[in-house]
Design a protein around this nucleic acid. Structure first.
Lengths: 117, 117
DNA sequence: TTGACATAACACCAAATGGTTTCATATAAT
DNA sequence: ATTATATGAAACCATTTGGTGTTATGTCAA
């Protein structure tokens, strides 16, 4: 019982540029809200909200240390995204272009095998 | 001169569940708006807007065929996402835990050299 | 205990988002 | 030429989002 009808999922969480910046920051080290805020041109409250959203999406987690709350990256969650992406990966590198043909069994693309880097 | 200050980027485009469903649909075959709409409990106009957003993010492209406009997946763009993700990948599999060491220069993890893959 | 600091919790607001309906335009079919 | 079909575009609306400021609570230091 870790997730109960969360309002924000990973996709929404990373949609905001500020939140992506926060993730980048936390990639290198864990930080308290105040320090994170120092990197942005907005209020601490705003950043706290972003952190809350990131936290709800399990992209970060916060540990209370004294009167601080230190946030850190929760990198495992990125796997969700990777999994989602991997479904589409087959379509842009044509590793599975043959499979695609078989599955669709209906498109008349010329079988041009273009191996893009 | 392909992209001029686009309003929607890839991250925003995939943030919406409906748009992700549209992508999934188009993964298998290219489709005109009307047919796409048939899969959703909302108006054609709404879907058209979603397609416009996906198109602006270059995740799909539309070709006009007669009076139809057929939309198809533009899978190359997913690479953007993959690139973004790959930055964080290093943190959840420790492929680059050594690099992390160097960059941070502050944590005292044992130097375990684990070359995955 | 008192004061300073770090965060949490509200109430509030403007703008963006995701949907609607209606009207216009282009193409196909009869 | 007329009608039906497929889309485009506009005006409109409710809700969500991303920000603000203020007040409350908990913790550390004197």
């Amino acid at each position: 019982m870790s997730s109960s009808a969360q309002k924000y999922d990973v996709f929404q969480a990373i949609a905001d540029p500020t939140r992506r910046e926060v993730l980048k920051l936390l990639a290198h080290q864990e930080l308290p809200i105040a320090e994170i805020t120092a990197h942005f041109p907005m209020s601490r409250t705003a950043i706290a909200k972003h952190l809350h959203i990131l936290s709800e999406a399990n992209l970060v987690s916060g540990q209370k240390v004294g009167r601080e709350k230190r946030y850190r990256l929760q990198p495992e969650t990125f796997q969700e995204l990777k999994d989602w992406l991997s479904y589409y990966e087959q379509f842009w590198n044509n590793k599975l272009s043959i499979l695609k043909h078989v599955v669709e069994n209906e498109d008349e693309d010329s079988l041009n095998n273009k191996k893009t880097d």
